[in-house]
Design a protein around this nucleic acid. Sequence first.
RNA 1: GGGGGCGUAGCUCAAUUGGUUAGAGUCCCAGACUGUCGAUCUGGUUGUUGCGGGUUCGAGUCCCGUCGCUCCCGCCA
Length: 589
Amino acid sequence: MRTHTCGALRSAQIGERVVLCGWVDTVRDHGGVIFIDLRDRYGLTQVIFDPNDSREAWDLAQTTRGEYVIQVEGVVEARPESMANPKLATGEIEVRGDQIRILNKSRTPPFPLTDAEADKVSDDLRLTYRYLDLRRGAMQRNLTVRHRMTQTVRQYLDDAGFTEVETPILTKSTPEGARDYLVPSRVMPGAFYALPQAPQQYKQLLMMAGVDRYFQMARCFRDEDLRADRQPEFTQIDMELSFVTPADIYEVVDGLVAAVVAACGKGTVQLPIPRLTYDDAMNRFGSDKPDLRFGMELVELSDIFSDSGFKVFRQVLDQGGVVKAVNAKGLGGIPIRIMDEWTAVAKEWGLGGLAYIRAQEDGEWKSPIVKFFSDEERQQLRERLDIAPGDLVFFAADQRPVANEALGHLRLLAGRQAGVIPADALAFTWVTDFPLFMVTDEGRLTSMHHPFTAMHPEDLDLLETNPAAMRAQAYDIVLNGVELGGGSIRIHDPAIQARVFDALQLPKDEVEDRFGHLLNALSYGAPPHGGIALGFDRFVMMMAGEQSIRDVIAFPKTQKAMDLMMNAPATVDARQLRDVHIKLDDGRE
RNA sequence: GGGGGCGUAGCUCAAUUGGUUAGAGUCCCAGACUGUCGAUCUGGUUGUUGCGGGUUCGAGUCCCGUCGCUCCCGCCA
């Protein structure tokens, strides 16, 4: 139907007779000549209709409107002197149209499809008419970025000896973890499949199958509440490798993300990607997903105040807590209103309040607490925090995890407020040596990563004595303060796996029911193995410069997990319910 | 489950302390115009103020409920 796309023509084609197809982007009717910007996903080409060329075509061109689909035939011409449009790749030329066919009309679109306007259109409209939203240049670019990244991942992992294997979507519910999406069985009344939260067990079983290096662009499903960076179904770059240590995983993933970043034209990632232990990340940045695009690190001050006359600090220290602070360089002049907001944030994260020092330009410190400090304490503070005129220092005195986490959140607010976070920087980091377990609010032990995670070999003996202190061979990869992915070395010894299930106090029969196949498989010569999964949607979002993964998923769901275009989920008819042995409890069937 | 924001013309928004006929830009429609590219000029149409109740002489505005979109906390091994 066409000889070229709307992005293809250049000066080199001047004089050629061409046929273009596309959507009418805009019509500029001058009464005499009519300009039509013809658009497809490759670009925009100006077509000019002159009544002197073909009265018939000109008449028809006059009737076109935005989003009409047309086919145009004409000759490529150089634009007249000084009429070139440098904003268009095709701006040197135009097509003098002498034939036009309206392939399809369009109703007036429910929202403008020009990018500048559409960015402000409400999400529900965009999602209801997603096929129109996706017609926009920005969305087309996002789809393209995603495709480029997918291709790069497949190519890189293929080159690295990986085999892509598909694992089932209809699988089995497992205890712990996210809420499952359930699918009723027709042939087994009362039984349900679960959609996978991740192909975790399958990929381990593939290691036992001798696949050695597996990957999959794996669709995962979690029935939990949504966020800007969380959808109920999402895609992971899922990997598992045999005979590896964490260092082998880091090497593969370092190369992978560097290749993807390069393919997106986002520069060169310095390798190796730096590594931080979990403890260091928490102590220095107050987060297990630290944003390393800027400094403002947390500074430990407990030793300075160990004998302090300032009771608030002393009491916390006497109870085994810590005193820490952040120097928010240059924020000394921050409005009180914002300090009040930050104080509220500090309280939200468990601090009693937010003590601070504003170092004024004249060198004097304004602070509600500094009068309680001795001269020596002030001097040590000045040195350790490098306090200069114009700085703002805020303190946290609490148990270490509370102080770290609260300051970590405040650090991000301070960084944004100070404008010191470079928007185009890509700061990758590994966070390693996560704790193996955490203690729930009810005092129960639970896996921080998942129950198949291997512990540090030297921590094995703590399993029955002090499990909370055990370190895992688990790691996350973080980009600009966003958790991009995580993984671990897995337990390959069935005896140790059984001890972990014991420590988690999972009932024996439940372990047998849910994990029996895995324990079995481990007992038939399972190789040491480990892996990682990267949140692909988040990665695309960051490469595309978007704020929400909805903008890099073709057909995403709303915060209530609805598909506004398809109107899913929806009721089904009574016969379908009967087939799968389900009776609704709202009176309908 | 909890907290915040938003909902007014097809779209993006405005509307003083609760006040009379709810406006603007854009889109759309009609007309004019032979070099525009955010075309321009002239004229015109467009409203269940998300929905339901309440208070009031009077509600876009206040109150209660509800629906939708969104951000965050919880949740997401």
